[in-house]
C-alpha cells in the first residue's frame, strides 16, 4: 500500500513539481515539518480559545485583558466537584468550579473559570464601598463546596462571601443575611491570608449563584475568648 502511494506520488504532477522545488536536506525537511507542526498547533490552540495550563495563569491573563494590575491571590478553590440538590436521592449534575479571589489596592477581584470554554470565564472587580477600618466583602461568583454537613452523601454546593481586612485578633466570624423568606446565618474560622469565607447553602427558592448579592447583612467577629470584636452592618455588594 505504502509502495503504491509512493509510486503514485512520484508520477503525480504535483509530486514531481514539489520534488523539484523542494530539494531539501534532511535538516531542511525537519525544519519544514516543525514549521507545519507549530502552525497547526497554533491554529488548534486558537480554536480552543487559547487555554492556559493553570488556573493562576488564566486569572493573570484575565486581569491583563481587564487592564488591572496583578492582585495578591488570597484564595484559590482549585478543582472541586459540587453537586446541588434539595432532595438527598435525586440524581444531580456534577460541576467543577475553579475560582480565585485576589486583592488589589482598593478592590477585590473574583475570577471564575468556565469548566468547558475559555470564552465563558468571568472576572468581577468589587470596589470597596466600606469605610476605612471596616471589613470588606467580596462575593465569589459561583458555587463552592461545603463539607461541614455530614448528613449529606454528596457535598453540598454553597454561595460564598469572603470577608477581608478583619479586626486584629479575630478567631472566628459570623454573617447573617436578611432575605425575604427569612434569616440565613453562617460562621467561619479565620483562613489563610486573614480572611473569613461564609458559605451559604443554596436557597430553597433559587438556584442562582448570586442570590446573596444585594441582601442586608450583619457581621460579627470574635476573638479566641469569644469576646465580640466588631459588629458591622451593610449590604452585600451587587454585581452590575
Amino acid at each position: 500500500m505504502r509502495g503504491s502511494i509512493k509510486a503514485w506520488w512520484k508520477q503525480n504532477r504535483l509530486g514531481v513539481w514539489l520534488q523539484r522545488k523542494l530539494r531539501l536536506s534532511r535538516g531542511g525537511k525537519l525544519l519544514l515539518n516543525l514549521a507545519v507542526i507549530m502552525l497547526t498547533a497554533l491554529c488548534l490552540w486558537g480554536m480552543a480559545g487559547y487555554p492556559l495550563p493553570t488556573l493562576k495563569m488564566e486569572f493573570r491573563r484575565m486581569e491583563r485583558t481587564y487592564l488591572l494590575p496583578p492582585s495578591e491571590i488570597l484564595l484559590s478553590t482549585g478543582r472541586i466537584t459540587a453537586a446541588h440538590s434539595h432532595e438527598p436521592y435525586d440524581p444531580v449534575p456534577k460541576v467543577t468550579q475553579e475560582q480565585i479571589l485576589g486583592l488589589g489596592e482598593d478592590y477585590a477581584v473574583t475570577f471564575w473559570k468556565h469548566p468547558f470554554s475559555n470564552g465563558g470565564n468571568q472576572l468581577v472587580c468589587w470596589s470597596f464601598s466600606e469605610q476605612p477600618g471596616q471589613v470588606k466583602l467580596a462575593p465569589l461568583l459561583y458555587a463552592v463546596s461545603d463539607t461541614r454537613d455530614e448528613d449529606w452523601p454528596e457535598r453540598e454546593s454553597c454561595v460564598a462571601v469572603a470577608a477581608l481586612e478583619l479586626p486584629q485578633g479575630t478567631a472566628r466570624g459570623e454573617m447573617t443575611l436578611e432575605a425575604e423568606e427569612g434569616i440565613y446565618q453562617e460562621g467561619s474560622e479565620v483562613l489563610e491570608h486573614d480572611l473569613c469565607l461564609f458559605a451559604f447553602q443554596s436557597r430553597l427558592s433559587s438556584y442562582s449563584y448570586d442570590w446573596v448579592q444585594g441582601l442586608p447583612y450583619t457581621l460579627r467577629f470574635y476573638d479566641g475568648a469569644g469576646e465580640l470584636l466588631l459588629e458591622q452592618r451593610g449590604t452585600v455588594p451587587q454585581r452590575g
Partner: peptide, 25 residues
C-alpha cells in the same frame, strides 16, 4: 506529528465540532 496534527485540524473543521466553534477565534 505533522500528519496527525493536520488530520486533527482538518477533522475539526470538517465535522464542525461545536466546542471549537463556540470557543474559536
Amino acid at each position: 506529528a505533522a500528519v496527525v496534527l493536520v488530520l486533527i485540524f482538518a477533522g475539526v473543521n470538517i465535522f464542525k465540532n461545536d466546542y471549537y466553534q463556540f470557543a474559536g477565534h
